[in-house]
Amino acid sequence: MEGIIIAGFGGQGVLSLGQFIAYSAMYEGMEVSWLPSYGPEMRGGTANCSVCVDKKPIASPIISSPDTLIAMNMPSLTKFASKVKKGGTIIVNSSLITEKVDRDDVRVIYVDASDLAVKVNNPKAANLVIFGAYVKNCKTLDKANAIVTIGKIFAKKPKFLQSNIAAFEIGFDL
């Protein structure tokens, strides 16, 4: 089982990023659950979701210690970094988080997601850059399937599809 917590500000595409992972895993035939924190907050507030991916049916969808943390902003890193399993992975959005992770028992991947998204002319797609970096580093998901998944999710918004895949690729190719 891989437990992933994705956290950041509302509006950063945190919940969508969790859905990209959940959809991709489902299309690969795995069992998934996607559980959002929900609250009265909107854009600018905090948001996070817990995604479980497994070959067996998911028992508890609640993750107390994630295998992977994706931290899109500093408060999220502060809140969840210490909970990541030993030997786990933290993906840090270094566009917004300037500090280094203070742990030597986890793998840390720094992704300048916002700047890279601007580079492919898709400034809103920082979450897709991170998705690319996640697929590359965490080995749970297949790259080709992830791209097909992005195609399915954005089927109704075809004019964004190419630039979204470009954002994914630039994150994957880091």
Binding site: V32, W34, L35
Partner: peptide, 10 residues
């Protein structure tokens, strides 16, 4: 419960 309403599963 609120969790069951909000959770996404296949």
């Amino acid at each position: 419960d609120g969790m069951l309403g909000q959770i996404m599963e296949a």
